[in-house]
Computed example of a mutant assay.
Amino acid sequence: MKKLFFVAVLSFGSLTAFAQAGEDVALETTQTAIAQDDFSEIETSDLPEAVSTAVSTDYPSGAISKAYVNKQEQYKLEVTLEDGTTGTLYADKDGNWIEL
């Protein structure tokens, strides 16, 4: 009789555990906005020779598709490789790679 009572209590307890309403979880969404980087577009022919040389040396299969400059004479370059991949590089006026 004790076993029957124990089984009945366990069964009832486990069934009520599944019958509880789930909690509503509110997810917070965080949006990050990137500020304007103050680069203005220039012609690729207006790039300093040191920057053009750095691209051709380090990325021989790359071609500069767009170029931008800011007030600190830092250059933002959009480079396309032969296989179609594109990337953005940053360089100073002396052709040294920088991270922004």
Rank of each mutant, 00 (worst) to 15 (best):
G95I: 08
D92M: 08
K76D: 02
E49V: 10
Y68P: 00
K3S: 12
E82W: 01
D24Q: 11
Y59G: 02
V7G: 09
T53Q: 07
W97I: 00
A8V: 12
P60W: 08
D46I: 00
K2I: 04
L15F: 12
L47A: 01
E78M: 06
T86N: 09
L47S: 07
F39K: 08
K2T: 07
Y59P: 01
Y59S: 11
E28S: 05
G84Q: 06
S45I: 03
I42Q: 01
N96W: 06
W97H: 03
T53F: 01
P48A: 00
S45V: 09
K2Y: 01
A19N: 14
S61D: 15
A91V: 12
A8H: 05
G87A: 03
D94W: 06
L10C: 12
M1D: 13
M1Q: 13
S61W: 07
E49F: 01
E41A: 15
T57Q: 12
K93S: 12
S40P: 00
E49T: 09
L15W: 11
G95E: 02
V9K: 03
A17S: 15
L27F: 12
G84H: 00
D58M: 07
Q72I: 02
Y59E: 13
K3V: 13
S56A: 15
Q20A: 13
G22Y: 05
D94P: 00
S65G: 08
